[in-house]
Nucleic acid binder design. Structure first.
Lengths: 331, 331
DNA sequence: CTGAAAGCGCTAACAG
DNA sequence: CTGTTAGCGCTTTCAG
């Protein structure tokens, strides 16, 4: 691998000039610049990003740390982030924590050690430790779940969405809704549960039925199982995310329950498969791509300006998409 | 941020000793080692990974470059890779190319410049340029799609799977199967198409119906549209991946075609939603997690041993999972 | 077993 | 406008 010095030698200039040319400094004589470019090209020179980062104390890479790569919500976010990062000439490195605080800590450390230009984080819990990033002055924006720190954030108003979904269940004639809630530690899970409970309380006279579980297919299946095994089981389910919904569907099918007659279902997240299951799934859609886009925009501002800004907070809204699974059909 | 020198000063030793302690060199006096650890801890010292990488000419990060984060096949691979990388103390950085050769080139460059310890790549086309990685001696293993180079690879025998799926369609009584094929450039797409054609030819007397399209939901929808608009449309579809299958489903529904009566469908990839659509989708399942696991194992061997090995090639098999969508029901 | 010192490849003052 | 030079923070010979 040729180094900057080889290029300098070949072009008959100093390394400083090579560096200037390669970094588009405008103050270089055109003829020299050409010689440098030719030499660099002939040698197949590639700047060593590590050395550059060490010197500059920052790279042109941002890290996106998410909880679950297989959740379509996060992959849609990823697209949003990538689109704006790319436009600014940054690459995005995706890190999957799998809801594991240990992995999250590891990736936070990697991000710091690799001197990424910035990080977008969906924290496992509100107490995830970002102090090192903070000390290292690495720009950070938090998405999806809140953090107990004053930082830039892009959130979705889960509570409202959950409340609306539950009200819809009730308005459709279901009498005994329950909530398949996510894990206690996730703010989104508790927001959605609270939205659900809010609607239940407003309706009055209803038992507060819910079950915490991990945001996974298995978690959803287990929660549904517990709920449906109750002496007086619920007749409808509000599910906290689409991964869980798959598990709920599995359990419902296993029991031979007919959606629309024996049970009503509505879930958070408009997964790509939602319209195609039977019956089509009603959902509370989150503007996932938008979350990613806005987060990346906030991050890029900080990265590029470098100036310290007041923490900014953007909150987006959900959309209720009514399909069939939540409707109550005449017997 | 404290540097190694600060730790050395605080512990009253040289930077070399600090480095040795932090890298678990066994040849350090226990008492000194303790002093170093205490000092490092008190100062909140974190080694600068960039500087370390520059010196060592390698980091403890591997890159996984895939075509589509939202495809469950790739996310399952990701899990496999992460599990074994983590076991060896490596972090995996996921890069999403979105089937865009430009992005692929960018990430390959990033991988080289960031001096990752190794890369696992699902190449866009068989001619993707990995020469720079090769020159830089970065261990590489290719997955999913072939590359015109002698490198370690983990593939799935697509052709057999496609052939079996098509034979099943024919054996179920469908008379006019067509293939919703992926993009020409992807070896998986052409393998699957060839498997399909193989079965069609063996059966004899059948028209060779197929349509190339991108591996996306939209691609699948468009291909289905063309095929179903034929003067004599097919009565069954073999679809090349699960993203496309969603699009096919959409188009089929739009036309009011009843799966099982008017049309039979079978697709590659056992997406999580496959059992839950109506009717449940028959699929050719790929051992995705296994692909990731094996690929990471091959990579880790190279990374850790550092010795040049002969290129190795592992090929895994598919499994036909018959559900309802491919069955032909009596009218 | 430990320390001094030489870089890894690049950028950015600082001179000229 | 261009070159010289001093590091960025760490690891690793090489002496002692």
């Amino acid at each position: 691998m040729p180094k900057i010095n080889d290029v300098a030698l070949a072009a008959g200039v100093s390394t400083a000039t090579v560096s200037r040319v390669l970094n588009n400094s405008k103050t270089v004589n055109a003829e020299l610049a050409d010689r440098v470019r030719v030499a660099a090209h002939q040698l197949g020179y590639r700047p060593n990003g590590i050395a550059r980062s060490l010197r500059r104390r920052s790279s042109d890479v941002i890290a996106l740390i998410i909880n679950d790569v297989s959740n379509p919500f996060f992959t849609a976010i990823t697209r949003g982030v990538e689109d704006v990062a790319q436009r600014s000439g940054y690459s995005v490195l995706l890190c999957n924590t799998d809801e594991d605080p240990g992995k999250e800590a590891t990736y936070l450390r990697v991000a710091e050690q690799q001197q990424v230009a910035g990080v977008i984080l969906s924290p496992n819990t509100a107490t995830s430790d970002v102090s090192r990033l903070f000390n290292a002055q690495v720009p950070l924006v938090v998405i999806d779940r809140t953090l107990n720190e004053p930082v830039d954030s892009v959130m979705v108003h889960s509570l409202n969405g959950a409340e609306a979904a539950t009200q819809h269940l009730l308005a459709s004639g279901w009498k005994r809704p329950a909530c398949v809630a996510g894990p206690r530690e996730a703010s989104t899970a508790s927001d959605r549960l609270h939205g659900f409970l809010e609607a239940v309380r407003q309706h009055g006279n209803l038992e507060e039925l819910y079950e915490y579980a991990p945001f996974t297919q298995e978690g959803g299946a287990n929660a549904a199982k517990s709920l449906l095994d109750l002496p007086t089981p619920p007749d409808s389910l509000f599910v906290a995310n689409s991964q869980m919904a798959l598990g709920v569907l599995d359990e419902v099918r296993r029991r031979g329950l007919r959606i629309g007659y024996d049970i009503g279902i509505i879930t958070f997240d408009d997964a790509p498969w939602a319209p195609f299951i039977s019956p089509p799934m009603s959902v509370v859609a989150q503007p996932a791509y938008e979350v990613g886009r806005r987060a990346a925009e906030l991050l890029m501002e900080r990265v590029i300006s470098g100036t310290p800004l007041e923490p900014r907070e953007v909150t987006l809204s959900t959309t209720l998409i009514l399909r069939e699974s939540s409707k109550r059909l005449p017997a």
